[in-house]
Amino acid sequence: MKKAMAVVLAALMLGGCSALPGEERAFAVVLGISEKSGVWEAGTRIPTYQTGGGYVTISARGNSLGEALALLNASAPMELHYGQLRLLLFGKDLAASAQFPEVLRALSARGEVRAQAALCVTEDNVLDVLDALEPATGSRLSKSLEAMMTSRQSAGVVPRITLSDWLRMGERQQAVLMNAALENADNAMPGMDAAAGELAAKAAGKVQLSGGWLTNSAGQVKASLTAMEMQLLSLLQGRLRQGTLSLPQGTATLLEASSSMELVGTEVQAKVRLRYSASNLTEEGLTQALLDALHGLTSKLASAGCDALGVARQAMAGCADLAQWHAMNWPERYPALTWRFVIEVEREA
């Protein structure tokens, strides 16, 4: 009897498996979407599955997103599968348009699109960026992208918001999306205060992931953050605890960092604690530099209407139901909030 049950259960659990062999299916690593003057362009980076490896970009255009994706699948050498997507790349014009939130919802409604794919926006041509994506280390683009995003995120210079994260933010927080830019010979501006496309930095690949794009309550991209500003945001979010923190006045090696935030009426009281070493800044100098930088960052967030720190989560806790929350009109209330920072720094001798 137990064996019969085991057989039944095994058959049941395996009932969902598809019989399509690996060689007859192409696992897309990156999906890129852009839109201009009503023409939608969808492109994807897939492995060639040939000896020696390599990747190829295929693309299609349609009069709607659905049509472009259908044409992409119809013209691909094999059936496309989006279950291994690592990156969802969007053109900046599309990301700044009112259609962008609906595009994200439409993609999430397609069950085969991997919800853990990171969202990314580029000012460059989407297909050019796809073409430039090659494995920087090893032979697998998916692994290379994962490693790149993880190291950038550890350094605090990029946000990593997945499709699932974006959906689960709801009305409580606005996302900051990763910025991607093509490296070119004109990249000459030194320092982390430059935009991704201007950074005087050469990575192993030809695409630079650096900084972020601020979205407003309607889900549209409104402004960008440099790598330096992104680090400060990561510090406030509690994601940056160690590493090198860059400020206009100098750098500091963080040994320990923590932050907390409380909404009191119309004021946000934020506390930042740092322990650092190897810096040209004294404790007073670092405190002042941080205060100036954080005020600049929060002003930028407020101007863009981007509640990247999720202050709304605390505001919602005081509302009994959704109607009361909507009556609060958070998108108008948030930019008017004042910020008070308490910085505690300790330099290691």
Binding site: R172, R313, M316, A317, C319, A320, D321, L322, W325
Partner: peptide, 13 residues
Amino acid sequence: KLDHLFPVLGGGA
């Protein structure tokens, strides 16, 4: 996330 339990009354009465 703890705030996902709010609003406590959901969509209302």
